[in-house]
Amino acid sequence: MTDDTGAVETEEAVEVPKRSLPNNEVLKGLFEPFEDVSWGDSLGQDVARVPNERWLDFATAAKGAGFEVCVDVTVVDWMRSRPDRFEVVANLLSMQHRLRLRMSTTAPRLEPTVASLVPVWPGANFAEREAYDMFGIVFEGHPDLTRILMPDEWEGHPLRKDFGVGAVPVQFKESHKVS
């Protein structure tokens, strides 16, 4: 797993020097104990790149630091352009500090697994089910990891980049655009 973090850090190395810390006191206090979590600034938004095995620890610490809402969990499928195919992104919100934080981790191509955030924020439940349904990411420790949007008997995970759009050719629209 150290390989993964190394890979992510080299990618971010251009904009994020080694171990730069945010100016905000709350975020600084959150990041400092986590040596292997890198902080980045993405167009003015704080991003934490967390190694896969530290995901739950960092989430627990973030909740302790005042991020009481997990707004969203979603996935980006990077296919071959990154060493680890999937990037799992969670958007956190702290109402008391008026702060947002985006934390992301990676999951490998085969058997992508990430720890579930439901024990920390129960509100991650539906979002993680959607991520499982659409991308096939397995969230370990999720109470009810079943398909949520697609029918139960559906095969495949539609939002993966290698899943076709599924468009049917339309009679009056025989342009090359229609797959």
Partner: peptide, 13 residues
């Protein structure tokens, strides 16, 4: 009537 602008896997066309 036709699937509209959503010609994809999820909708009945």
């Amino acid at each position: 009537s036709t699937g509209g602008m959503f010609n994809n896997y999820a909708l009945v066309q």
